[in-house]
Amino acid sequence: MTEIISLTIDSIPVSVPSGFTILKAAETVGIQIPTICFHEACTSNALCRICVVEVEGARTLIPACVAQVSEGMIVQTHSDRVQRARRTILEMLSSTVDLTDSPEILAMMNDYHADPERFPESNPREFDLLDDNPMYVRDYSKCILCWRCVQVCAEDAQYTHAINFSQRGFDTRIDTFYHITLPETTCVFCGQCVAVCPTGALKPKRQWLLETGYSPIEIMSLTRSKRNGNKSRIQPERKLP
């Protein structure tokens, strides 16, 4: 028998079974908490922190997607502190990543009055488009490092382990073993990573070709030169400062 936990979310009394996350508990009373990295099918790593909420008595804000409810908990999902953190995270994202293919995040920016130009003179994360296989292209300038693709490629689904990370911190990138091309990896082109990617960083080749709007001949030559270009440009970045 599961225990029933009573708590308050935005002054509304809520009762849910123990083990529920704050995110799920809030949903039961129609309170929406924004999420970015969270995905039902993937291990939750609580890394985007957009879902943070204020829990009375806690020193820091708490990620609602992983934190479990407890008896008597008092939760604020939209306090000033929460809004400030969410807005700033969104503003940092927009100064770092090309969000043109991320409509959900753009909508969120609107909701939180986030200024896309908040951080002037800041370095974005920019990479050349990788077009090294017939199935999909990788445009890591659009990658928000949600880890979903790495996880579905590994223990969350496919156990192919074709991709992981290079570098760390701000300079982290989803990458293959020594930057080799995808066909050289264990990738089986199952497409699961493309399916879970929330930002258009991973895109089916067909869709990408259509979007670019070039004539088939132009596309052919563009792809070829891009491919050659990438070979030289994705040489491992130096690790030294």
Partner: peptide, 25 residues
Amino acid sequence: FKEESCGKCYPCQMGTQRQLEIMER
């Protein structure tokens, strides 16, 4: 901090970089 951030969570991954840029200025 920019060099040592592991890059897992957004606030620190990007915040340490933006903080560094302002300190450079």
